[in-house]
Amino acid sequence: MKLALKIWRQDGPADAGQMVRYDIDGVSEDSSFLEMLDLLNEQLITSGEDPVAFDSDCREGICGMCGVVINGEAHGPERTTTCQLHMRSFNDGDEIVIEPWRADPFPVIKDLCVDRTSFDRIIQAGGFISANTGSAPDAHATPVPKEDADRAFMAAECIGCGACVAACPNASGMLFMGSKVTHLGELPQGQPERGARVVAMTEQHDLEGFGGCTNLGECTRACPKGIPLNVISQLNADYRRAGYGGSSAD
């Protein structure tokens, strides 16, 4: 395949950055999108040009490290991660525009790499159950209704890639936050901290500068794990029960 790539190049966090066009030939339809970029980088290095920086790690769709916006869509045209997107989803001769996640709480580090530590700080604020090692009762001490366990699992599938933020017209992080609140809130173990958790995480979310959700659903369409929009509704419900942040008691 022959492709025309327009890639965002930015030397460092403080640089202005610009779109640069690269023509690439000999791309296999069976290669993944990131392998196509690997090929481009091999060619750039050989010709003495700085290779394009992009993040990826597991390359099997689970670690959440990769992610670029392809022709305006987070992770590209298929509902999967960028690493699992294959070139057979494109046509010979296509022009492909490749950009980093665009959100001010995800500042660009270089080229297509962004800093997503804001997500970690949202988890730090309360995305956990306080259970010190060794303090746990027997795992069978508290049965969990299968329905609740299944919904918790569904929400826990989030890989923290940030596509929801990238796709959201408001750059909101509420699908990410909602999935954690739903995951932990569905389980009996998560009840004691449920109110405090949602308040603290929401506070951090706003502090980081993410926008507010307007219920459009672009996030769930971009989510490679298909996390449904109802986790955001759950977040809102939990937040209301916690007194809109006025009191942290549930």
């Binding site: 779109m19 916006v69 022709n71 305006g72 950009e99 926008g211």
Partner: peptide, 8 residues
Amino acid sequence: ARTTRYAG
């Protein structure tokens, strides 16, 4: 929350 817009 998004001061740079997408080109694509």
